[in-house]
Design a protein around this nucleic acid. Structure first.
Length: 420
DNA sequence: TCTGGGGTCCTAGGACCC
DNA sequence: TCTGGGGTCCTAGGACCC
């Protein structure tokens, strides 16, 4: 049996933890660059705000009506998240941290000693009391059913935010009122296709013939159906899996036409990606860079391009990555376009310790170089940083804006909350 | 004027090999 | 005159997730 514990309006709830005065106020949290809404409370939803609404379109009306807004504060959210996960870890034998605000729990054994609904309520109360974040709990024999249970817990207030789908009859009842698009693994595209052949809810989906689905659609949807019927196809992943790619990309705060500035941006992203790669203890063999103009500006001529360049010797040295990024940029940059986003992607990873070197080339990063990177990383973890490379830029005119951010209450000594 | 970022998995199609 | 077929690997792009 699985449980899915899901934090309600997570980013917005994090903001409330240190601002009890916002208890029943509408709150929205914005994406990077204060671009669009990525989290919103029930109260904001009731005002007609939707996920992904562009901020500039709703700002005036929303603030006039007394809505509260924050730029995203990922340091705060990550810290609150890890505190929630710590508690969950103590409540169940196995835990999979699925995202910043969700975790799957393996409940085998738990159902022998307590009622699962009571377990859910207990979870909820502990996290609310110890952290201050409201959660809902969905319980079911497969992950996909636990997800459906969680949907039910959100949608129907009478459940008190906990739904246990152990019972087959109860499963069927909820599946019959769950729209197809709410199923885990069914996105907008599939929803449209399924609706077109007359499938409207989760129950109707389970009535389809599996081999037909595999032929007409794909193997992923076939798996989803088996999961909806109670057959476990997706296991709990409680071991941290090594990443297969690392991406750093940002929309610029303003449009950029100048190649020097683009070089600065991708160098900065390359250095950030390097930090992540070294944290994974991996080296990479392939680096890709992409740039694009703003697709929302129909009046501009569009340009988007991506290019990959291989390293002969796999590396995680920021200097190699930055050099590669600039080489790539040189190849794809075209003048007279108004770029609004660039990004870098690292892939083809190998373990740092078991490097395969090129047979005919001996130059590779030395022990001293490795220590240099380690030292920089260590300094940057303290408040003595940051140490950066000149090519990452100083003014960073392209870098994003975040004008409405709350303090880093839990991760910065100078921003601790005060009790008066 | 202003529209996010970071991932995974699957598939189709091309290059290449024997 | 008539010019195959099966396999692998790689990449780009799509769909999905939070």
């Amino acid at each position: 049996m699985f449980a899915l514990v899901d934090c309600n309006s997570f980013y917005a709830s994090c903001e409330r933890v240190f601002r009890p005065d916002l208890k029943s106020k509408p709150i929205v949290v914005l994406s990077n660059n204060d671009g669009c809404v990525v989290a919103l409370t029930k109260e904001a939803k009731e005002m007609g705000i939707k996920m992904c609404d562009p901020w500039f379109e709703i700002e005036k009306e929303y603030t006039k009506k007394g809505g509260v807004v924050f730029s995203s504060n990922y340091e705060l959210y990550a810290d609150i998240s890890s505190r929630v996960m710590d508690i969950l870890e103590q409540l169940a034998p196995r835990l999979e941290v699925y995202s910043i605000d969700e975790a799957f729990l393996d409940l085998s054994g738990v159902n022998n000693c307590m009622d699962l609904y009571d377990f859910g309520i207990d979870c909820q109360q502990k996290i609310l009391k110890w952290i201050g974040v409201p959660v809902r709990v969905g319980i079911g024999p497969t992950k996909t059913l636990a997800k459906i249970a969680s949907y039910g817990a959100k949608k129907y207030p009478a459940t008190n935010g906990v739904v246990d789908l152990s019972d087959k009859k109860r499963q069927e009842r909820l599946l019959k009122i769950t729209p197809i698009g709410e199923i885990w693994g069914v996105g907008r595209r599939l929803e449209k296709h399924l609706n077109a052949i007359g499938i409207r809810n989760a129950y109707e989906l389970t009535q389809l013939d599996i081999s037909y689905v595999r032929k007409r659609f794909n193997i992923v949807l076939a798996k989803t159906i088996r999961e909806l019927k109670g057959e476990i196809c997706i296991d709990l992943e409680d071991q941290p899996i090594t990443k297969k790619q690392i991406v750093v990309s940002r929309t610029f705060s303003q449009r950029v036409t100048n190649q020097d500035l683009l070089n600065e941006a991708v160098s900065d992203y390359a250095a950030r990606a390097g930090v992540k790669l070294r944290r994974e203890k991996q080296v990479c063999k392939l680096l890709s860079v992409f740039i694009r103009t703003n697709p929302f500006r129909k009046q501009d001529t569009q340009h988007r391009q991506m290019i990959s360049i291989p390293f002969i010797n796999p590396t995680n040295d920021s200097r190699d990555l930055m050099y590669g990024a600039r080489m790539a940029m040189k190849k794809i940059f075209k003048p007279n376009f108004q770029y609004n986003k660039a990004g870098i992607m690292l892939s083809d990873f190998y373990d740092e310790e078991v490097l395969q070197l090129d047979l005919f080339k001996s130059e590779h990063r030395s022990y001293i170089d490795k220590n240099l990177m380690k030292t920089i990383d260590r300094i940057n973890k303290t408040s003595n940083g940051p140490v950066t490379f000149l090519s990452q830029g100083i003014k960073k005119e392209w870098s994003m804006k975040r004008e409405l951010q709350s303090p880093k209450y839990t991760t910065n000594w100078n921003q601790l909350p005060r009790a008066n």
